[in-house]
């Protein structure tokens, strides 16, 4: 087991456990913190995949801004002081869990045999394609910036407009009459 693999398994485990804890926490603030842990794990994965810029942006945007916003809202609403009201019937939770689980099952089953994800190696065995870790420089900000401001400049501008409208929208919605 190489370091990369160790890190991969560690991060994956962290992500999964944290994600599950997001669901199981009674206190929304704990959920937020666990979700931040998930984001950290995912950022770790990005770094592992040599997408440093995305890793940092993920931290800044998700952990640094979005989750702070969540915390703000939760704190201002004083959520968590009283626990979430218990659902009268357990079956909706069961149904949710079962349907989500079956979706996972189906997806995994489909993905496992997806022809697009496997190649034949020299020995003509079917092996999965590799997501090359710690190789390549396309995650660098320079490369991303080049592509972003040439090929994707129109979506970029549109997304900035989207941002602006979201800002205005949030202000308008949040304003007290």
């Amino acid at each position: 087991m190489s370091i990369t693999e160790i890190v991969f398994w560690f991060l994956s485990g962290l992500a999964l456990v944290s994600a599950i804890m997001v669901l199981l926490s009674k206190n929304p603030v704990h959920s937020v913190l666990w979700l931040i842990a998930v984001f950290f794990a995912i950022s770790g994965h990005y770094i592992l995949l040599n997408a440093q810029f995305l890793a940092i942006v993920n931290l800044i945007v998700y952990a640094g801004a979005i989750m702070v916003l969540f915390l703000f809202v939760i704190m201002l609403m004083n959520q968590g002081s009283e626990p979430e009201p218990r659902s009268k019937s357990m079956w909706i939770k069961m149904a949710g869990a079962i349907s989500g689980g079956s979706l996972l099952l189906v997806m995994v089953a489909v993905i496992r045999q997806s022809a697009n994800l496997v190649v034949r190696n020299e020995a003509n065995d079917i092996v999965p394609k590799e997501a090359v870790a710690r190789v390549g420089d396309i995650g660098l900000i320079e490369k991303l910036g080049n592509v972003l401001f040439t090929e994707y400049v129109v979506p970029f501008e549109i997304s900035s407009v989207l941002f602006l409208s979201a800002m205005v929208g949030a202000v308008v919605i949040g304003k007290k009459e």
Binding site: I92, A95, G96, S99, G100, S102, L103, V106, M107, A109, V110
Partner: peptide, 19 residues
């Protein structure tokens, strides 16, 4: 929730059918 439940189940069914 019930909408999403239906959505997810339909998704499962669709994937199964396609598959």
């Amino acid at each position: 929730g019930s909408y999403i439940l239906v959505m997810v189940l339909s998704l499962v069914v669709i994937i199964l059918i396609l598959r």
